[in-house]
Amino acid sequence: MAEYLKKFAFHLSIVPNIDETAEFADIILPTQTQLERLDMGANNIPDTMGSTATEEYCINLRQPVVDIGNRHHVDVWVDIAEKAGFLGDFNAMVNYFMELQGNFQLSPERKYSNREMVERWIGSMSGGRLTLDDVAKEGRLKWKKSVQERYPRHFYRARIPLYYEYHIDAGEMIKNVTENLGIPWDVSRYKPLPSWYPGPGYGDSSGGFELYAVSYKQTFKTATFSNFNPWLVELGRNHPLAGKIILNRRTAERFGISEGERIRVENRRGRVLEGEVHLSECIHPECLGMDHNGGNWAKSLPPRPKGTDSGVHFGELLDYDMKNLDVMDGAFEASPKVRVSKAAGGRK
């Protein structure tokens, strides 16, 4: 990833923390954290909007709890758009994405603040009935769902097809495009019926690569940016699984590995990571698990005790190439085959 980021001719980062990506930036502009920001729709909209389990639609308003002079990243982008001469296009894009209607639409020549955009969105969403101040009182914008919205299946004569004939057409189209471009592309999986394909490493344990590496998230962390929050880092340090490599107890015994040891995990391409092992009964004997919340190395991470790190970096084991890509959905193989051994340093 580091080599890839170095290829960019110019790199701007607008971030509240100088994270790993920002470390490669030519220019870094500071912005607000979540506690400083005013954002409409701070919740995960599909969970509260799309679910038929709720009686009402609900959009939360994230309100600033502290102002320490940082600017909202939208305001920074508006400045850049104005100075770079594409403010009109920028405003048009906002109108499109926020679905602003009528008088609430942004005019192309005027510069709007983030606050104004939130105001307009609320106005547009509520048909002019509500203002930002109204929504701020309750902290959310909500409205009742109709019966049809709550029980959609009753009102739609939908069919779930079992035979996807359009896959055949899509395959043909892709074949034409890739042949014209001279790109070798396998379209054999564009079949109308559900098919099963083994993962790239399935059934092949040669060379000692007999374990599947799997990953998951810790409940209290999101991706790797939670490691900029010292409370969550502290929680992780006191968690039996966070940041560790999990092996089935009997599998570990077979490899002569004991609890707390530092082990080395290697994929078929020779990519290696090292970490502390935790032995468990709650993992399949053929799997090796770790969360994907670790691996940070940015200099601005909160201070941590000597000898501790942010945990293993699962991404190190993934291969981003055509062999590991599912051409149908664009997903990469996320359970690579690996082999384990004791790390040279031994016990942590």
């Binding site: 010292p230 502290e234 039996p240 699984l241 089935n248 009997r250 468990s280 009964e281």
Partner: peptide, 16 residues
């Protein structure tokens, strides 16, 4: 730092 009034202990029971 390092002071948690509220903690959650985690452990396993049973055998795979």
């Amino acid at each position: 730092p390092d002071i948690f009034f509220s903690r959650v202990h985690e452990f396993e029971s049973g055998v795979y």
